[in-house]
Amino acid sequence: MFTSVDDVSARLAETGYLASPAVATTVFLADRLGKPLLVEGPAGVGKTELAKAVAQVAGARLVRLQCYEGVDESRALYEWNHAKQLLRISAGRDESWDETRTDIFSEEFLLPRPLLTAIRGEEPTVLLIDETDKADVEMEGLLLEVLSDFQITVPELGTVTATRRPFVVLTSNAGRELSEALRRRCLFLHIGFPEEELERRIVRLKVPGLGAALTESVVRVVGALRAMDLRKAPSVAETVDWARTLLALGAGTLDETVVRDSLGVILKHQDDIQKAAAKLDLDAL
């Protein structure tokens, strides 16, 4: 899919995803080694965006499995279409039982769910397993076969093996410790908060109307906030939101009033806002 690490960064940048060297290198390796990619990091740094960008670059179909508490086999892998099976049985009254039995457990009556869809696909596919940490531990066991061998075993049909390996991205907010078995099957990528330079470029790309000086100030203030040990440090998404807010407010430069009035855009807890205001020498709110 990619020829070099530079190729990855350049092509991701075309879709509007600016990748740090770590991200570009790891994506390149995941493609080259054919291993799934486990992406961890705080909320709002672009974990899901990465999968979407890769899909767009590769011209691949994006198959997404959104995990939640209680997601199970029939939501993730496949399900038999019971209604259709019943119809088939009642339609063929004169057949022998053996014919019916072999027929109703065929591909036609199988409802593929995301994992099976991604495995069976003939065209290039990016499989995104989002928020893996939200799923139960049992679900991880289900993923192991898919992730290590790219195959799924359906008892009535046999084993379905991928003809074309999908590019797999798993994301996690570290809400729960993922099992060691799952981790060892993946390349691990931790996306943290970006370097100042990269974040400036991101803001410039997403909010082109904002002046260069203001962009720099915004990034510096956010950087200082992140160093403050807050309950929820502002993420890239918040930086971009803030930049958009400042643009909408028509602020030319950052000053105390503007920061004080818009601090709620980047900080989501009242204690954090108070703490930040104190450290930044704003007047009491």
Partner: peptide, 17 residues
């Protein structure tokens, strides 16, 4: 490129931040 190698090996060997 040494920094790329660093990231690559980290991705292959490590399991947590």
């Amino acid at each position: 490129d040494r920094e790329r190698l660093r990231e690559g090996l980290a991705a292959a060997l490590l399991h947590g931040p």
